[in-house]
Simulated scan of single mutants.
Amino acid sequence: MRLIFAGTPDFAAQALRAIVAAGHEVALVLTQPDRPAGRGMALQPSPVKRLALENGIAVFQPPTLRDAAVQAQLAAVGAEVMVVAAYGLILPQAVLDLPRFGCLNIHASLLPRWRGAAPIQRALLAGDAETGVCIMQMEAGLDTGPVLLRGAFPIAAAETGATLHDRLAELGARLVVEALGKLPLPGEPQPAAGVTYAQKIDKAEALIDWSRSAAELDRHIRAFNPFPGAQAQFAGQTVKLWRAVPLADGGEIGRILRVDRDSIVVACGSGALAVSELQKAGGKRLAVRDFLAGHPLKAGDRFDLPA
């Protein structure tokens, strides 16, 4: 099938790789303009752009798709379908209407739950028992279109944002190839009940509030691993927490109950959190025994509480 692919991060690159491997003709790749990154803040291509160039696929990086000249360039491709995965730009109706089979979106949730920008982290934060991927026929509304294919799996107890991302990216790649091979597919309208929105992650959300339950903070730490990293404050300094497990212990909120070579146990609003991997500002992620060598925390110390 002759298609246009629109995507930007690693999640999308995995789908593009699968589509190319399946033998489809990717005539054009749309991706976000190069962004400054790294210590030197040099312009860096997106993962999708790098993959496209490796495969000799033409790349187009318009800042908007609302421009008539841009739309004319897309129309000239003569694509039968457009596949969209975490692209980052709004597709106007004129673009949605271009391909014969329309535009298909790979969305990392079980729609209509978690429409929007951050479904992976929101599912973890909410303690959802399962998640999955929907291949959706795009329309003007935000993730409101009919679902062509869906796949689901349970969320594991130790799942992080990183591991869940990788599992969903793999599922999304497999499902979109399956969908492309079966077009045209009937769409299942999304039910009106059960709609939730996955708002974009704000870095301010990363701050840990020790008055919340240990179970909530466990999900908080896992959801924000790797981005933006759950942040606690100790003596006015930021410490990122990367790995922890909830315990039934209790005590004064934010107080360190005990410290050993494997964990620092901190009292929460309900229960306690046994933290096993930390990172000081500007430092590396360290296991507790290595962290304690340079930062001697002890039982009785207390993490700062949010104002």
Results as ranks from 00 to 15, higher is better:
Gly78Lys: 03
Asn55Met: 14
Arg66Ser: 12
Leu91Ala: 09
Leu53Asn: 15
Gly56Pro: 11
Gly102Tyr: 14
Glu80Asp: 14
Gln61Asp: 05
Ile106Ser: 08
Arg100Val: 12
Gln71Ile: 10
Ala85Thr: 11
Leu65Asn: 04
Gly78Met: 01
Ala76Cys: 05
Gln71Asp: 09
Val83Lys: 04
Ala75Arg: 11
Pro112Ile: 00
Thr64Ser: 13
Leu111Gly: 04
Asn55Lys: 15
Leu104Thr: 07
Gln71Trp: 04
Val84Cys: 13
Ala79Asp: 07
Val70Leu: 09
Val77Gly: 05
Ala58Ile: 12
Val59Phe: 10
Ala58Asn: 08
Gly102Cys: 11
Ser109Gly: 02
Val77Ala: 04
Asn55Val: 15
Val95Gly: 03
Ala94His: 02
Ala69Lys: 15
Val95His: 07
Val77Cys: 07
Leu98Val: 01
Glu80Tyr: 08
Leu53Met: 15
Leu65Ile: 04
Val70Arg: 03
Val81Thr: 13
His107Pro: 02
Arg66Tyr: 01
Phe60Gly: 01
Thr64Pro: 00
Leu65Phe: 00
Gly56Arg: 06
Asp67Pro: 00
Asn55His: 15
Val95Cys: 02
Gln93Phe: 02
Ala108Leu: 10
Gly56Asp: 05
Leu96Gln: 11
Ala58Leu: 15
Asn105Gly: 09
Val84Pro: 00
Pro62Trp: 00
Leu65His: 03
Val81Arg: 02
Arg100Cys: 02
Asp97Met: 14
Pro62Lys: 04
Gln73Ala: 13
Val77Ile: 10
Ile90Arg: 00
Gly56Cys: 08
Pro92Arg: 12
Ala86Tyr: 07
Ala108Ser: 10
Leu91Thr: 08
Asp97Gly: 12
Glu80Ser: 12
Ala94Ser: 13
Leu53Asp: 14
Val84Ala: 13
Val95Trp: 03
Leu91Ser: 07
Gly78Arg: 04
Ala86Gln: 05
Met82Val: 06
Leu96Gly: 09
Gly102Arg: 10
Asn55Gly: 13
Leu96Met: 06
Ala58Asp: 07
Ala75Met: 05
Ala76Leu: 05
Gln71Asn: 06
Gln93Ile: 09
Pro99Arg: 12
Phe60Val: 06
Cys103Leu: 10
Leu98Arg: 11
Leu74Tyr: 05
Ser109Phe: 04
Ala72Ser: 14
Met82Asn: 05
Val70Gln: 04
Gly56Ser: 08
Ala75His: 06
Ile90Lys: 00
Pro112Asp: 01
Asp97Glu: 14
Pro112Leu: 00
Gln93Asn: 13
Asp97Lys: 15
Phe101Asn: 13
Arg100Gly: 02
Gln93Tyr: 02
Ala69Phe: 09
Ser109Lys: 01
Gln71Ala: 10
Ala69Asn: 14
Tyr87Ala: 01
